[in-house]
Design a protein around this nucleic acid. Sequence first.
DNA 1: TTAGTCGGTATACTCTAGGAAACCAGTATA
DNA 2: TATACTGGTTTCCTAGAGTATACCGACTAA
Lengths: 118, 118
Amino acid sequence: MDKKLSACANPDCGKQLLAVRDAIEVLGGKWRIPIITVLGYYKTRRFKELQTEITGITAKMLSKELKELEANQLVTRTVQDTRPITVIYEITPYGYSSSKIIRELYDWGVAHREKVMK
Amino acid sequence: MDKKLSACANPDCGKQLLAVRDAIEVLGGKWRIPIITVLGYYKTRRFKELQTEITGITAKMLSKELKELEANQLVTRTVQDTRPITVIYEITPYGYSSSKIIRELYDWGVAHREKVMK
DNA sequence: TTAGTCGGTATACTCTAGGAAACCAGTATA
DNA sequence: TATACTGGTTTCCTAGAGTATACCGACTAA
């Protein structure tokens, strides 16, 4: 999302924001949460299956985001020696842990929509 | 953050993402979480105090983001008839509710840093 | 009268996340 | 031979988020 999320001048407050920045860096952007959500739902998916499921994402973005999620240990990538080759992406237990946050976002989003809409 | 966060093709999964999108729209961007964090910490702050506390933010961005947070009922704005005029921004109970998510992000960010760093 | 505070606006710019479309190698089927 | 599927990569481009800087009116204290 953001390269540098500013800190508060106040040290306590500043430390808090540093950690929040880390979380946003891992989960931020347009496609990470959709990817994690889909993978959390199906547990494993192939590249093309993800692309079909996540409407609107381009191969470029999917490839890029999966790499970063892999680097952050939220998903694993396994090449299967079939013909044609298939690549299995699987959510890790750690990846599941992030869905706790996504669940929070979901609950809050639902409540917010109700509150603001009426 | 993002104007349109895509949905999953799968309906269950898609509904979930719509609500998540709402939450991200309200809390996203570079400055909203810092503002809520600072306001959650101090409860009330004046415009200039916020600008001082949130290092790096410009008056334009602060003004713009406060307006949107006010529109979403996360903060209130009160003009006080002093000389010179002072404007008090205060976090609402509803604004506090969003800090539950921020807390989640914080906890996860701390754990993530520990996991990935070593 | 000049400089300073407050809470902002207005204008013009930069920069980068993301999008569109073409292309790639390897294998298989018609 | 050509077309299609797999899982991508490369290039070019744009919209919009965020930045920099100057400015505003109302007031006051020196």
